[in-house]
Every structure is written in structure tokens, then in C-alpha cells.
Design a protein around this nucleic acid. Sequence first.
DNA 1: CACCAGGTGTCAG
DNA 2: CTGACACATGGT
Length: 280
Amino acid sequence: MAKIVCDGEYFNVKDTLSCGQVFRFKEDGSGAFLVCTADRIAKCYNDNGSAIIECEDGDEEYFKNYFDLARDYSAIVRRAEDSGYDILKTSAEFGKGVRILNQDKVEMLFSFIVSQNNNIPRIKGIIEKLCALSGELKTGAFGEYRAFPSAKKLAALTEEELKGAGLGYRAAYIKRLAESMDSGAFDVESFSHLSTAELKKSLLSIYGVGEKVADCVSLFGFHRSDAFPVDTWIEKVYREDFKGVLTGRDKITAFFVDTFKEDSGYFQQYLFYYKRSSEK
DNA sequence: CACCAGGTGTCAG
DNA sequence: CTGACACATGGT
């Protein structure tokens, strides 16, 4: 078992996991969190000013990258505080322990298709059911867990089975994408070298993927920090806190990316997490 | 009962 | 091009 210890000032495990970028995690009862990603698992928690990640030997580099440990978040938070926008300053101070994860691209694609017109607790439940239904059963240092289902496994499910997981009308989107990936017609990994604009265009060609999901996959799967997803919460932030008057989510995205450039994705996450936390 | 949730596809004008 | 509407599901 490997153990990674780092400074916890800009790495709050609970905030990083519960800010809405990742769906497969749970608290283990002692304040620590078990996180599943693709076919791996880690246990993480904050203790005495530090953030600690425990994982299998050999997964150390994977999780250092997954939690984006090489990046200096103090500089990002400082730029948010100095942006001149009060709401962004407040949000960044509230969520300064949030890190943007480097998650599995395929898992992000399927997960954010599930997310559309849906709420986070339900998204978590649906993904959990999909994993239980067809994810490979694994045994690790923390007991049994399920891998995220491969495209082949998902393609093998009937639309009735998919709907049984709670997917509703999204079942057709999942099925079509799974089949297209399984046949080799669609390879998300090959998108890595594309510019952010080209990447988004490629993602938009998928049936069931629109602007918002494409931006989330770009940000959370490809770490494109010049992506700014606009959902119902961010639209509220834009209207209420930025006093914005533009209509159309694509224009709101353009406004934020023009304003915040490479910081867009990080700032979006601070704003989203703060807004959602303070209105519940 | 209506309305909402990390929206998108489709169709009418 | 923009705007209205349907689309499953579970929670308030």
C-alpha cells in the first residue's frame, strides 16, 4: 500500500469530491473517502493540516496526476481573489481547497451524459447502479468495488436494463455511444492532442452531448481550464451575482472564457460550488 | 399538483 | 438564427 502526503491548505478532500465534478465516491464512516476512478480505488482524507491519499502500490503516479498535485492552486486562488469580482473572491475563499481532478475521459463522457437535466444525488445513484450492473468486480486493499463499465459492457446491456438503472430517456444516448465506441468508430483518447475548440467540436458530434456536457468533459476529463460549463446554477450566478443580461448559455460561456481565459474552469468550479452550497 | 435538477434534440417561424 | 417543447425520474 502506498501513501501520499501533501499540504492540505489547497487540498480539501471533502470539498474536492463534493463540488460536483466526480460522482463515484463515498464516506467510509470515519471521515475518510473512498474514491473510484475507472478501474482503480483510493482512500483519502485530511488530517492535521495535510491531505493524505492511500492507494495500491503502483497506482501512486496515477493518483498524483488524478488529484492534480503538481499544480500550484495558491496562485489560482489569488487570481480569483484579485479578479475584482466580489462573488468570485468569496467563492474562491470558500472553495480554496477544491482541486480540478484529472479524471478518466470515457467515464466523464458517460457520466456527464447521465448528468443532463438531472441532479447530483440522482446522478451518483444511477452511475452506481450502472457499475453494479456491468462494471468488473475488483478486490483491493479496501475491499470489493466495481470498475466503471467498459464500452463493450455497456453496449451489451439492453435499453430496458439501462432504463432500469434510472437513465430514463438518456438510455438511448448511452447505448448509441457505447456501441459506437465498442465498434472502434469513436476513440475519445485520440482527442487529446486537439485544441480546446476542436475538442469541443468533436465532443458535440456525439448524440446526446451538447455544449454543457462537452465543456464538462473538456474540463474534468481533458483538464481544459479554458472551458466554462454553464448549467442552471451558473446561469443563476451570472444573472444574480454578475448582473449579466446576455441570453443563451453559449454566450454566457463566451463571456466568462473571454474574461478569465485559462482560469475559467477553476473559477467556474469555485462559483458553482459556492452557489450550490449556499442555496441549500 | 407543479416545479426543479451540472440539458439536448427537434421542429416551427 | 432563436425560441418553444418533449423527454424519464425522483425529490420537494
